[in-house]
Amino acid sequence: MNSRPTMADVAAAAGVSTMSVSYTYNRPSRVSAATRTRVHAAAAQLGFTGPHRAAQSLRSGKTNNLGVVLTEKLTYSFENPQARAFLSGIAEACLDTDSGLVLLPNSRIGADLNRVRDAQVDGFVLWTTVVDDPMLEVAVGTGKPVCIQGGPSYPGARLVGINDEEAAYAIGTVGVKQSKRPAVLSFPRDRERVVERVLGPDPDDATFPVTADRLTGYRRAMADAGFEWSDVPVSFVATNSRAEGRVAATQLIETGVDAILCTSDDLALGVLDVAPAMTVTGWDDSDEARDAGLTTVAQSLFDQGRDAARWVLGTLDEVPAADWSLKLRSSTH
């Protein structure tokens, strides 16, 4: 069986140096057009298809791949508009550096931990996860750069995201202004994703930092408006979907609530599906939110994804603070 031809074989056949062959494939501007023509002709004659990428990666320690770890099923990245925006930002950063994007799930602790530990990537961007997620130790333990969107904070990793507590306080203040019985429709509290309705839950019990911070901000807004947090119903959903928003909203409305603060636009749109006149706030300022006249928190998950990926890939020295703003529309009258 003939062995695979090497760059040295091509160099000998073309009458040039091995370095000239390497430049022809990896840095073509460094050699003349005539040299490139001779190298390609010799390569075609020998059946040489280019440098062996796996061998190059072993020598350089670089794979030119970025790992993106989701705390959801992989389908979430295609179904959820916020996840799509985040991944689009990552994809732009990969395009700028000619890097591949490897999507990795984080829903099954055993298999997914090993998959991340063995991933042939140059670093990781993690979608928000829980504070006790073993994936954090695994990802940072690879020694590769790690950036986490939305938290949690973890030694050896960078964070990208907005100040969720302050944004929640700001929009909560708007949402309960005219209310006599407000409620909250929230992301899951923890990885168990139990669907439940609780009066005044302790935000610190939530192991998803995004959930904890937004509940803390809402609680402050409720207190300033004169409400006892212990009397405020909070419905937790299993996933962030419009369908779950409809179900939870129907149940909350039956208890007599007149305003609902939601931790996402999808959940808020579900509320408007069943109660178009309800006072409701969302989060993320999606296209659908703008069309529906939804008062919401605007943030750019595209920018956050792009900045996280650029830092991991080494084209950004520091991850900048992410901005947010309120979009006041008809859903808060």
Rank of each mutant, 00 (worst) to 15 (best):
T315C: 08
W324Q: 02
T296P: 07
A289I: 08
T295G: 07
R306V: 11
D284A: 12
R290C: 12
T295K: 00
S300T: 12
R310T: 06
A292Q: 03
A321D: 15
E318W: 08
A322W: 00
G305N: 02
L316G: 05
Q304V: 10
S300C: 11
G293V: 09
A289Y: 02
F302D: 03
A289G: 15
D317K: 15
L326G: 01
W283K: 04
D303L: 13
L313R: 01
L326S: 01
D303A: 14
E288T: 10
L301M: 13
E288G: 10
S286I: 11
L294A: 03
A321Q: 15
Q299Y: 04
S300Q: 07
E318V: 15
Q304K: 11
D285M: 07
E288K: 11
A289H: 02
S300V: 12
K327E: 12
W311R: 05
G305W: 02
P320N: 09
D307G: 08
T315I: 15
P320E: 11
R306M: 14
W283L: 08
L313Q: 03
T295A: 07
G305D: 05
A298T: 14
E288S: 14
R310W: 10
L328S: 05
D323F: 09
E288V: 08
E288D: 15
L316E: 10
K327L: 14
L328C: 04
P320L: 13
A322Q: 09
D303N: 13
T315G: 13
R306W: 11
A308W: 01
A308D: 00
T295R: 02
W311S: 00
G305I: 06
D291R: 13
F302C: 04
E288W: 07
A292D: 02
D317Y: 05
S300D: 07
A322D: 04
A321E: 15
T296G: 07
A321I: 13
S325Y: 06
R306P: 07
V312C: 06
D303H: 12
A289V: 08
V319I: 15
D291K: 11
T295H: 01
A322I: 09
E318L: 12
R310V: 05
R290I: 13
A292F: 03
L326E: 01
R306I: 10
D287E: 14
T296H: 02
D284K: 09
G293C: 06
A308Y: 00
L326R: 00
A322Y: 01
T296D: 02
V312M: 06
D287H: 10
D323V: 15
L301V: 08
R306K: 15
L328F: 01
P320M: 13
D303R: 07
A321L: 14
A298D: 06
R290A: 14
L316V: 07
D287C: 08
L294S: 04
D287T: 13
A309R: 00
L328W: 02
L313S: 04
A308K: 00
L316Y: 10
R290M: 10
A292V: 07
V312H: 07
R310H: 10
W311Q: 04
L326W: 00
Q304T: 09
D285I: 08
W324R: 01
A309S: 08
L328G: 05
F302I: 06
A322N: 06
S286F: 04
W311V: 01
S325N: 07
D287V: 13
